[in-house]
């Protein structure tokens, strides 16, 4: 559909007849809908392609590594980025290891540790907690 076909049909300086206006309105609104529906279909298609590729990546995580390797091969002129080895977070002074929290938030854990230290009469920094787990109903 080329809109140039419509050029010259009506003169802008002539009075617009009602019949012409009706016809023009009908064709005009149809064209607006056609163009915007075409855009809607294109946008939906592009969206589906992107969503589909994301789902595939989630389903086959190994593909992502293969793609990255292929990309690296294709872009041979780029030096590979140095592999960063994961570094464990620095522990606070006086810490003697990690505490495992199971179904317990940090605020509750802090309170529990403070209560235990107080009841035992031992300073908190002399105690070592390995794990705090919320007791479920059936475990009581």
């Amino acid at each position: 559909m080329n809109m140039n076909l419509l050029c010259g049909i009506l003169n802008k300086d002539d009075h617009l007849k009602i019949v012409d206006a009706l016809l023009l309105a009908l064709i005009g609104i149809v064209i607006v809908f056609i163009v915007l529906i075409a855009l809607m279909l294109i946008v939906s298609l592009v969206g589906k392609i992107f969503d589909g590729s994301e789902k595939l990546k989630e389903k086959h995580p190994e593909w992502g590594e293969k793609i990255a390797a292929t990309k690296a091969k294709l872009m041979f002129w780029k030096k590979p980025a140095p592999i960063e080895t994961p570094v464990a977070p620095e522990l606070a002074t006086g810490t003697c290891g990690e505490l495992k929290l199971v179904n317990t938030d940090e605020r509750d854990a802090a309170m529990i540790m403070a209560i235990v230290a107080d009841n035992m009469g031992v300073p908190l920094n002399e105690l070592r907690f390995k794990s705090i787990k919320k007791a479920e109903e059936e475990e009581k």
């Binding site: 009602i18 206006a21 009908l26 005009g28």
Partner: peptide, 9 residues
């Protein structure tokens, strides 16, 4: 397009 019809009318 409705205004176009009205203007022509």
């Amino acid at each position: 397009y409705l205004v176009l019809i009205l203007a022509a009318a």
